[in-house]
Amino acid sequence: MAGHKTIEEIEEEIVEEFSLFDSWDEKYEYIIDLGKKLPDLEDRYKLDENKVKGCQSTVWLTAEYRDGLVYFKADSNSVIVKGLISMLIRALSGHEPDEILGARLGFLERIGMMTHLAQTRSNGLLAMVRQMKNFSLAYKIKKHEYGRDEGKSN
């Protein structure tokens, strides 16, 4: 569980972890490892409406709103993309919509991901972030419309 850490604190952790790597070989090894460890999404979520546009590989993303916090689940048929998603989930999942919406996610730049990945793929990464923020925005609006307790039925 992300627990009490802020998104920024988690980003800081990821940057620190990456600073231990000397080469991109090692970084990719790590990302691939994250990708393999992220649980597969159940088939019932692998719907067209959950697909994220803008990626060469297929990415599915779903979200859930519980106790005022947004939780993400995602999957991809590309292990590297799945590893990247895993990092995004680690940073963003389990936070309030407002915090997610305000997240700058500078860590992607700082670990060199944006410059290392070719333009088209980093666009895919941005598409994922956008989708995560869209979910958060939707929950935020819902919270306003239906009152604070709406998400707590679970």
Partner: peptide, 21 residues
């Protein structure tokens, strides 16, 4: 069990340009 995009990324990391998709 490998996605072309992953191969493309890892080959690019070795300076090898291929097309995937």
């Amino acid at each position: 069990k490998t996605h072309p995009q992953d191969l493309g990324i890892l080959l690019d990391n070795r300076g090898i340009a291929v097309r995937t998709g």
